[in-house]
Nucleic acid binder design. Structure first.
Lengths: 108, 108
DNA sequence: AAACTATATGACTATATTGGAATATTATCA
DNA sequence: TGATAATATTCCAATATAGTCATATAGTTT
């Protein structure tokens, strides 16, 4: 097992392992957006959004296009839908499991 | 946008955003394994492997089964293959891009 | 050129995550 | 019961990451 390769993969995954960046990705799924538009949608600080866009870009997850004062960002990951679908399954499984625990406890 | 929901998702993603845990997941893709087997394959500290197994389990990504002194772990995520396939694409794109940059620079 | 607008960057503090060493727990076996 | 084996847990120092505030940059408009 090559630890270096796993670190590379980890860097990419870490880029999506953050609520702000997940929100950015989600709002880019609708299509290209400027930084201002993203800020308005996710209701966050300008500097924070900008910084997190930089992190996503540095990992090759989004790309940008400058036009005058604006910078337009787009998703570069085609497989993102499958991934989030998988994620939703995991989360609903988790909830189901917790709900079962709660039910079991309240029956005793 | 519901920040709490994004935090939940983030917790799951964070669970795979670590080299040791990625290695664990990869070696569980071959099938059920005991902790000792995992330790031997990924060549890591016992306490570290055990701890990271706990993190993966707490996020519903793996499950365990006790048998005598041993604990067997299995993957619970069916969609893991698609995800890693996607990840590999992103990484190879990144490398391609960096290679292009290097080529461009060395041609000047 | 000065004022303005959109975005990026830097410095900073708070918080989270990391892996290792030591120790605890639990089951098995003699 | 005492020794041993497999796994989990706790404590800790080092490092990484988060977001905020202030400032910088770069393009636009007047």
């Amino acid at each position: 097992m090559n630890r270096e390769f796993y670190k590379l993969k980890t860097a990419v995954i870490k880029a999506i392992a953050n609520p702000t960046r997940l929100m950015i990705i989600d709002c880019l799924r609708e299509g290209e957006k400027t930084v201002s538009e993203i800020i308005e949608i996710i209701e966050d600080e300008q500097s924070n959004v900008s910084k997190n866009l930089g992190i996503l870009k540095s990992q090759g997850l989004i790309k940008d296009r400058k036009a005058g004062l604006n910078v337009y960002y787009t998703l570069k990951i085609c497989c993102i839908n499958e991934f989030f679908c998988c994620l939703d399954n995991i989360i609903s499984e988790k909830f189901k499991h917790q709900q079962n625990l709660i039910n079991t406890l309240s029956n005793n």
